[in-house]
Design a binder for these strands. Structure first.
Length: 933
RNA sequence: UGCAGGGUGGAGCAGCCCGGCAGCUCGUCAGGCUGAUAACCUGAAGGUCGCGGGUUCGAACCCCGCCCCUGCGUCCA
């Protein structure tokens, strides 16, 4: 038997079947870096319309985790797909460098008693180190960007511009200074942002405390009694924070609730009517109701403080509820927002508010009875004191969820301090300048003008902005951008030249970083005035750092290569409260508009049980680990194939699935390469009009795919991209077109029209696919590009979507072949029956007879003898009949040793034994002609 | 407790806006090919579309209620 294998055009390519990704990706990362691909891409894209995705800066502490990877990969897919769409899409990555977590790290390493300047120096070095580590991991993911020139919030220029931004806000009249209860952490010694607070269960002591009657006549009058019985009396309150009692300055009652005056063994009690029973039960007292009145009747009546010699008047408040307690609430304006606001409403001034708790959690020394005590320790002493004075009615442990510092995990309190604020509704103004509308109104209008992916983000951000309180801009930390103000020692007023002084400081910071402010002697700027002014030590909230990058980066350090406003900000959904929020507020104050045209959010990574990924539970999967085993490409494909708008599920099992689907795509690509390796488009391409019909159909399918994927990319629907790519590779190519094509590619003459037509189609399919894949499977696409285009200094990213040849009537072609495929299916199934009976193996062993009528008959008949190639059978006949059916039978003819078809003319040429007629023609004659398949 | 999102064969997702046989890929099982071969092709099994009502000739899809999951926020003075 002659070996005809060598007479076939079998696939051939150096593109390996196995990606060996974990190892070989490193080579591409290095290659991109060495060749300066990003930089060259910028010059290639220069002049195109710009698309700016502004990177939200990750915090420069710790190695990247899976969430970072998801975020950066999504950004990368967008930047690359926009580039391929013909945009100039720069990507300037950034890092958030200041703030407490880093300061805490330094404290841990070096202790607490460093000078501010030394702390800053160490923090700066630490952050720089963290950034380099993260940068390596980000690059390893295949993320392309300006890694040699990222933005850092700690860059001197950035720090200086941030001070300038502060100056702008002040000058426009948004900033004010005032006393206000803010979340306060004793361990931080600082106010916390809303985002820095989390809730955890905590056990406290809940106590019921009586405030003795002070004005018996007014109480009697309120209850409509001529005179009170001659017994002691109390208004009873319930609290879980005994330590706030030394700062008590009022009692709150609801204006519409009914309160009873109850006669008990321990005297007269005032309680909310609805809570009377439960309270008395708790106090183990029995009582009779003497009279009742509404809360509003109690307004202004003063009661004695339980252990200090002063009075607390009743103020009315709608926020008083009947869920727990007594219906009367004790009010310590320095330690509760509602308390603060109600006391303010009743005319209390800042300086009247009692603030006995210091920043370290201890009572001031001068506080009678409890001076110097830590508030948590003082709780017990306070309860004991109340008990001693006979004012304690009940005490019981109480578990409730309570605010904790996200860093220290220790309880946080509300504490009135002097802070700087950006007013949401109040427009404090600055030297006569006032914004035309409130910040809240500007921001809400900005949200309405922003596009959201997914759309529901809009309602969410809107809701947050609508209800948020004023922004506390100041912090009492070291590692942060200073609020370089000078305050008059007596009046507390800002220096009249503050705007100029800020600019002067900014200039110095630009030269020497925030350390320059630390070093600055006030006399250098103020001269003799210096002794009358305090140099403020506050720093800016770190959210202000990242919230002002649209100014410090887009209009500052990277203004030439980016633009304002950005086309897109993209972050995890938690950033509605974080970066989206702070950026919106800063930009609305500075520019009156948001810094972005659109916002995209993604969910968090969770495991199979629907739990959030966490290292402590051992379910966490690190990107470093995945990169090192499966490859970053698998991580990228997983991210892209997941609907990121809700949670992203990840597990070993899921990654295994992703690896499988990667293999499928990779092998399809390999087949395409292997069958075009001897094809030179310039010399061999068949003109569109002369191409074989099924090849033109393949082009039509590809054109439709490309059109759909371009749209999916545009709408950031990457999971649809992956799904369609997959289906295309499996269904349209693998199971249909390529399967049919093998015969023609392998058996026709290498340079025949029939084969070159197929290769022309494959050439275009490959060009289209490799680019459509590139944003997601960047490593694979680049690898393929090098093989396909013959190496050189090119990159797939230097190109745009492939321009496919324009078919004249693609719809007609699609309709015709869709029907053909539908008619093919039952025949394939009948062949499978034969196979199950053991009567055929390969489908080429079968012959098929279609019995059809009408359009279907015409359709199949129109293919002539080429129908058998579409059917993958040795013969396919069509018969006109009204009784439609498909017959399949094993061939009784002889198998051609070369093409494996079972044909009558095998051996007809005595000189060529074992060969069928067309193989003889292909090998020694003119070659066969194909028109349809 | 408020806001938002989700719940479709073992896994990942379509379908829902605009009601009309529940679909794709992967996996599983069975078979084939041995000229894409650690690949490829064919077929099959597998789903009460979270639950309960309603509207409708007809509901995964529209309406109401509930349950569960996730994120964000908030609260117990």
């Amino acid at each position: 038997m002659v070996d005809f294998k060598s007479t076939l055009n079998l696939p051939d390519t150096p593109f390996p079947m196995r990606g060996d990704l974990a190892k070989r990706e490193l080579g591409w990362v290095r290659d991109w870096q060495q060749r300066g691909v990003y930089k060259r891409l910028r010059s290639i894209a220069r002049g195109r319309p710009r698309f700016v995705l502004h990177d939200g800066p990750p915090y420069a502490n710790g190695d990247i985790h899976i969430g970072h990877a998801v975020n950066k990969i999504l950004k990368d897919v967008i930047v690359k797909s926009r580039t391929l769409s013909g945009f100039d899409a720069p990507y300037v990555p950034g890092w958030d460098c200041h703030g407490m977590p880093i300061e805490v790290q330094i404290e841990k390493k070096h202790g607490k008693h460093l000078s501010a300047e030394e702390t800053q120096r160490l923090c700066r070095a630490y952050a720089a180190e963290q950034i380099e580590r993260q940068k390596v991991d980000f690059r390893r993911l295949g993320v392309m960007g300006d890694w040699d020139n990222p933005y850092l919030t700690m860059a001197y220029r950035n720090e200086a511009d941030e001070i300038r931004a502060l100056g702008t806000l002040l000058g426009k009249g948004y900033v004010y200074r005032g006393l206000k209860p803010v979340n306060w952490c004793f361990d931080c010694g600082s106010a916390l942002a809303e985002a820095e607070v989390e809730y955890e269960d905590r056990k406290d002591l809940a106590i019921d405390v009586g405030f003795p009657f002070a004005d018996r006549d007014r109480i009697a009058k309120a209850f409509g009694l001529p005179k009170l019985p001659d017994k002691p009396g109390f208004a009873v309150i319930w609290t879980t924070t005994p330590w706030t009692l030394p700062a008590n300055q009022a009692l709150n009652a609801h204006p519409e609730f009914t309160y009873h005056l109850v006669d008990t063994e321990r005297g007269l009690l005032i309680l909310a009517a609805d809570l009377q029973q439960s309270c008395l039960a708790r106090y183990k007292l029995s009582g009779t109701t003497l009279a009742g009145c509404t809360g509003s009747a109690l307004e202004g009546i003063a009661f004695c403080h339980p252990f200090y010699d002063r009075l607390s008047p009743v103020y009315l408040g709608d926020y008083v509820t009947l869920d727990t307690g007594t219906g009367i609430v004790h009010s310590a304006p320095a330690y509760g927002v509602e308390d603060f606001e109600s006391c303010r409403r009743y005319g209390m001034k800042d300086e009247q508010i009692l603030t006995p708790v210091q920043g370290d959690g201890r009572f001031v020394k001068s506080l009678p009875l409890f001076g110097g005590a830590m508030i948590w320790d003082a709780n017990l002493e306070i309860v004991a004191e109340i008990e001693r004075r006979g004012a304690l009615f009940d005490k019981a442990p109480y578990v409730h969820s309570y605010m904790h510092c996200w860093r220290h995990k220790t309880p946080v309190i509300l504490r009135a301090t002097v802070q700087w604020f950006a007013g949401m509704d109040a427009t404090p103004g600055y030297r006569g300048v006032k914004p035309a509308e409130t910040l809240r109104a500007t921001a809400l209008r900005g949200i309405d003008a922003t596009r959201f992916f997914p759309a529901w983000g809009q309602a969410r951000l809107h809701g947050m902005i609508a209800s948020r309180p004023d922004w506390t801009l100041s912090r009492q930390r070291q590692w942060g951008v200073p609020m370089p103000f000078f305050i008059h020692k007596e009046t507390g007023e800002l220096h009249p030249d503050t705007l100029e002084l800020l600019e002067a400081v900014a200039k110095r910071v630009e030269e020497g970083g925030i350390e320059a402010w630390q070093r600055l002697d006030a006399r250098e700027l103020l001269g003799d005035d210096a002794q009358r002014y305090d140099k403020i030590k506050d720093t800016l909230d770190v959210w202000f750092d990242s919230g002002s990058t649209h100014f410090t980066v887009l209009r500052g350090s990277h203004r030439g290569e980016t633009a304002f406003p950005a086309d897109l900000y993209l972050e995890g959904s938690d950033q509605h409260r974080g970066w989206f929020h702070s950026s919106l507020l800063v930009s609305c104050m500075m520019n009156g508009v948001p810094p972005y045209k659109a916002l995209l959010t993604h969910g968090f990574v969770i495991d199979m049980e629907g739990r959030k990924m966490s290292k402590s539970r051992g379910t966490g999967m690190s990107p470093q680990e995945i990169n090192g085993t499966l490859g970053a490409e698998i991580l990228r494909l997983w991210v892209a194939s997941t609907d990121y708008s809700s949670e992203l599920n990840l597990s070993k099992e899921i990654l295994k699935r992703v690896v499988e689907s990667y293999r499928r795509i990779r092998n399809t690509l390999r087949f395409l390469l292997a069958n075009t390796s001897d094809f030179d488009h310039a010399r061999h391409a068949v003109p569109l009009a002369e191409m074989i019909e099924i090849d033109r159909y393949a082009l039509a399918l590809t054109a439709r795919l490309q059109q759909e994927l371009e749209a999916d990319y545009e709408r950031y629907q990457f999971h649809l991209v992956v799904q369609k790519l997959q289906t295309f590779c499996s269904e349209d190519l693998g199971a249909f077109y390529l399967d049919i094509l093998k015969d023609r590619l392998y058996t026709c003459r290498a340079d025949s029209h029939a084969r070159r037509s197929a290769q022309t189609a494959l050439y275009h399919v490959t060009h289209s696919l490799v680019r459509l894949l590139a944003p997601i499977l960047s490593f694979t696409a680049e690898e393929l590009w090098a093989v396909f285009t013959g190496g050189g200094d090119d990159s797939v990213f230097f190109h745009t979507w492939h321009a496919l040849p324009a078919l004249e009537e693609p719809e007609q072609l699609m309709a015709r072949w869709s029907r053909l495929r539908a008619l093919r299916a039952p025949a394939r199934k009948r062949i499978e029956d034969l196979r199950a009976e053991g009567r055929v193996g390969s489908s080429l062993q079968a012959e098929v007879d279609f019995h059809l009528d009408g359009a279907d008959y015409d359709l199949l008949a129109s293919l002539g003898d080429d129908l058998r190639f579409v059917m993958l059978t040795s013969a396919a006949r069509v018969h006109r009949t009204t009784e439609e059916r498909v017959d399949v039978a094993p061939s009784e003819l002889i198998k051609c040793e070369r093409c494996w078809h079972y044909r009558e003319d095998v051996g007809a040429d005595a000189a060529r034994p074992g060969l069928c007629g067309r193989c003889v023609a292909n090998l020694y004659g003119e070659g066969e002609a194909r028109r349809h398949a």
